[in-house]
Computed example of a mutant assay.
Amino acid sequence: MCLVELSPQLFQLRFEIGHAYLWRDADSLTLVDTGVSGSERAVAEAIGRLGLREGDLDRVVLTHGHEDHAGAAAAIGAWPGVEVLAHRLEAPVVRGEHPYAPPVFDDAPDWERALYENKPALPPAPPARVDRELADGDVLDFGGGAHVVGVPGHTDGSIALYLPGPGVLFTGDAVANVQGHTMVGVFNRSHEQAVASLRRLAELDTATACFGHGDPILTGAADRLRAAAAAPYPG
């Protein structure tokens, strides 16, 4: 894990596969996604490098329930005082009540299927407690008010988080930014829905975009998102 300061309040945890983010307010600490199972040790280390302790973490917000985003939710959710939040459609997957549905490649580019077939195996995500089920339009108490944006397509219950004050957007896997190419995320349940979700996010006044996969965009993110959404066949 590599901890990268993106701003005095925003920190990226770069894992071998995927990323998580810490948002630090004066009186609270929020983790967006967790990495794979076992990443709790790296998350605790990152919190320690901020001069804080595990007990200072207030909440974990999961953009969706895949192993590389919710794998350590059970372990981190066991830390004292931590609240675990996920969309209401994603909560049964996070709790282990239902398996997550595999992607559908009917409308996706051919290269995407090949990428999926050759992706590395990840440790399964242990069932985790979900304390609060979210819906599109909810506002969470961090970052001056973090807006929950429903972005179905990658999964039915995928969400993004938008902080209007600082102009920060956490896209989860709805959008990726790989090798300088901003694009709709891959491995979707519905490519059509995923494209619609990208276009919805492109309407936001985003300065900084933080992706589940790929490098963050620290300035002018709205222009990059709008260009990706305007492409003839996004992704």
Rank of each mutant, 00 (worst) to 15 (best):
G172P: 00
P102K: 10
H69S: 13
Y100P: 12
P109M: 13
L169N: 13
D173R: 11
G137P: 06
A72Q: 09
A70N: 05
G157W: 05
G81C: 08
H87S: 04
G145F: 01
T171G: 07
E83T: 15
T155I: 01
Y162F: 15
L115A: 08
T155K: 09
P80T: 00
A121G: 15
P102Q: 12
V149P: 03
A91Q: 01
D136I: 01
A125K: 10
A146R: 06
Q179K: 13
L169F: 14
F170I: 14
V139N: 06
E90M: 05
P103N: 14
G150V: 02
W111N: 04
P120T: 10
A78T: 01
D106K: 15
E117G: 04
A70R: 09
A125S: 13
G81N: 07
L140Y: 00
G145R: 07
V94C: 07
H69T: 12
E97S: 00
A121I: 10
S158Q: 15
A101L: 14
F142S: 02
G150Q: 04
G137V: 03
G165D: 15
G145H: 05
L89M: 08
D106C: 12
L122R: 14
P102I: 09
L134S: 07
R95C: 07
L134K: 11
A108W: 15
A108C: 14
I76R: 14
T155L: 06
V168Y: 01
A174Q: 10
F142I: 09
V82D: 03
V104R: 15
V94R: 03
H87A: 10
P99V: 12
P126C: 03
L134A: 10
P109Q: 13
D107C: 02
G137M: 09
A108M: 14
P92G: 08
V82Y: 11
G145N: 07
N118D: 13
V94H: 02
D106G: 08
A86L: 06
S158M: 11
T155H: 05
I159Q: 02
V151Y: 02
A74Q: 06
A146E: 04
P127V: 04
Q179R: 13
D138R: 03
V82I: 13
V84Q: 08
V82T: 08
G172E: 09
N177T: 04
A174R: 09
D138Q: 02
D141L: 10
D110M: 08
P99E: 09
Y116H: 14
A125I: 12
G150L: 05
G157H: 00
V104E: 15
G81I: 12
V93N: 00
D141F: 08
H147W: 08
P164V: 00
P99N: 10
A72I: 05
A176W: 15
F142G: 09
G96A: 03
G172D: 03
R95S: 07
